[in-house]
Amino acid sequence: MSGFADAPDADVIARILAGDGDAFGILVRRHEAGLLRFATRMLGSPDAAADAVAEALIRAYRHLASLDDPTRFRTWLYRIVANRCKSHLGRRSAQRVSLEEAAPVPDPHDGEAELERAEQLGLVERALRTLSPEKREAFLLKHVEGLSYEEMAALTGERIPTLKMRVHRAREALLEALKEHR
């Protein structure tokens, strides 16, 4: 399997569908960091994000044969994770903020630059949480995960002009929230 580690997603998928289920591990390792980052930022909780991503990957494996275009596997994965996140957010009370969702507390042993970075990250995370799930998703996909508008359209099922407008509104809302949380 090691010689296959750099193969494109579509080739790995072909191998899995031919019966080598363990090759799915290559895809998991390749994509899990981005998916976990996206889900953690969407949900504000690393534990909930791990659940969402694990469930999404299991679901993806079981429905791999139904994927029409294997070259779009990454976008497809993000779509499944995004849907999991939306279900999770729908179930969760908007007011409830657990301890792990609170801003990270900087370790006093860290250097000054690190403390400042942690403080700024806390500020951005708080600002991000004030955005509606749709705007948060749009900002994260575009600016944190680096998806193109075409990929976002395939992922969300929305039209590109709608998504552009949503990203623009998300930027404005985030800047506004950053001012308030200063």
């Binding site: 799915f24 591990g25 998991v28 390792r29 899990e32 960091a33 976990l36 980052r37 953690t40 930022r41 690393p46 791990a50 991503v53 694990a54 990957l57 299991i58 494996y61 990270p104 970075r117 942690a118 990250l121 951005v124 995370e125 991000l128 994260l140 600016h143 944190v144």
Partner: peptide, 14 residues
């Protein structure tokens, strides 16, 4: 937002 997360993995679970 891109960088400030501890490394994590769900590979074993999956």
């Amino acid at each position: 937002l891109r960088a400030g997360l501890a490394p994590a993995s769900v590979a074993g679970r999956v």
